[in-house]
């Protein structure tokens, strides 16, 4: 399964806007496989952390109510073209993934 993080960081008027989409099934653990009738095990992201130049700027906890292939957007005060924004996630099965964006001025 693809575990990509698509992430973009754009600087405008002194604010860096981060937009990210994570490829992840976000299974609740209550859905059934329509053919076998078996319950599809829970598989969802629990924690996401975002750093700007290796300094943490945002943490979030997620449950199963976040949509499949999660979307996340927020704004960082400041930032500069060329800065590194890294998003890292961990799910309930211990899998992790990350993606990096270099801040671009608009």
């Amino acid at each position: 399964m693809s575990k990509k993080v698509k992430i973009r960081a754009t600087l405008k008027d002194g604010i860096t806007t981060v937009k990210a989409i994570i490829s992840h099934p976000m299974e609740t653990g209550s859905r059934k496989n329509k053919e076998t009738g078996e319950i599809i095990p829970a598989h969802f992201i629990q924690a996401v952390e975002v750093t700007l130049n290796e300094e943490v700027v945002m943490d979030t906890h997620w449950g199963t109510g976040i949509s499949k292939n999660p979307y996340l957007s927020f704004q960082i005060k400041g930032g500069a073209a060329g800065d590194s924004v890294v998003l890292t996630w961990t799910d309930n099965l211990g899998e992790t993934g990350s993606g990096e964006a270099i801040v671009k001025a608009k």
Partner: peptide, 28 residues
């Protein structure tokens, strides 16, 4: 929170002085 979801609590986002106080997500 989504009041009528089977599990109503969706997420907590932890803010700090480096962030604007706004966040976008998609929920079930």
């Amino acid at each position: 929170f989504v009041e009528k979801n089977p599990r109503p609590f969706i997420s907590t986002i932890y803010l700090n002085d480096k962030l604007e106080s706004s966040v976008s997500l998609r929920v079930k």
